[in-house]
Design a protein around this nucleic acid. Structure first.
Lengths: 142, 142
DNA sequence: CGTGATTCTCCACTCCTGGGGAGACTTTAT
DNA sequence: ATAAAGTCTCCCCAGGAGTGGAGAATCACG
């Protein structure tokens, strides 16, 4: 079974349900990824069934990792497009990655600022301020 | 103009356009907030026009502030419900803010990990590695 | 060869925060 | 009194990441 592809020289591949089972992702999600171009199938069977290569598992693992790290599918696709652009010299990919790091730094910076603002707000927080008028919460100079 | 409501003792209020002008928010947004229950109108005119109290401005300012601090409208509504019940929602707001800071921290942490991963990838980058097999760019092993 | 499991495409729906516009009605200003 | 401006409700649209179902086709097993 595992060696089916070896017998014939013909293009073989997992059907979507197998890939779903091995990757742990729902079939729907795999189709969704394929539609987006994140996870290209190597082709279709006679009956039109998607066929995926073994590499798809690695690719899905890569996607999963980046996803858990908070990247959007669009950002991940950016990485994969670069990855798949085989004709481009590695230097271009390097630039893409550096750009990606720059974007991440900007995001971290932005989040840090927001965090600081919230922290500063809480720092001066009074747990039981005097009620006055129709003030909603005296801690917030609204 | 500003004193129109004083002449009659009858329940008066801003129409939505006035509140929009004074708050700087689009009419659509105010209607949306009213629909959600975030910004109750004091009533309707004969013709069915929403009428808002002066306090609505303060309330909108409160909403705006919490929004810029990253709270969802639902979380803000939670605070406002407490407020409308007669209490100062200080404690609730505090909890929401702390929760928000926690979320930001987690996000920063994850981004930092991704950054490190990409950085590590670039650290071992070879500008012109030998191509081998079906690896498109040997620097990127997924 | 039949039957059930798998897969296909297409459409709709979720949550969130509104934006755009249609068509009808109310209010205001001249 | 009439025209213009404001407001009403209702419905569709966006993006992000899928999920669910209908109906049709295909595959695998006995």
């Amino acid at each position: 079974m595992a060696a089916v592809g070896i017998k014939t020289g013909i293009k073989t591949g997992m059907k979507i349900g197998v890939l779903a089972g091995r990757s742990g992702l729902p079939v729907k999600t795999l189709r969704y990824y394929e539609d987006l171009g994140l996870l290209p199938a190597i082709g279709r069977s006679e009956g039109g069934y998607r066929l995926f290569a073994e590499q798809s598992l690695r690719r899905l693992e890569f996607i999963r990792r980046l996803k858990t790290l908070g990247l959007s599918l669009e950002e991940i696709q950016g990485c994969l497009v670069v990855h798949d652009a085989g004709d481009l010299p590695c230097a271009d990919i390097q630039i893409q990655l550096e750009r990606q790091i720059g974007r991440i730094d900007a995001q971290i910076e932005e989040l840090g600022q927001l965090r600081q603002e919230l922290q500063g707000l809480l720092a001066g927080w009074q747990s039981d301020p005097a009620k006055e008028g129709d003030v909603i919460c005296p801690n917030l100079r609204v």
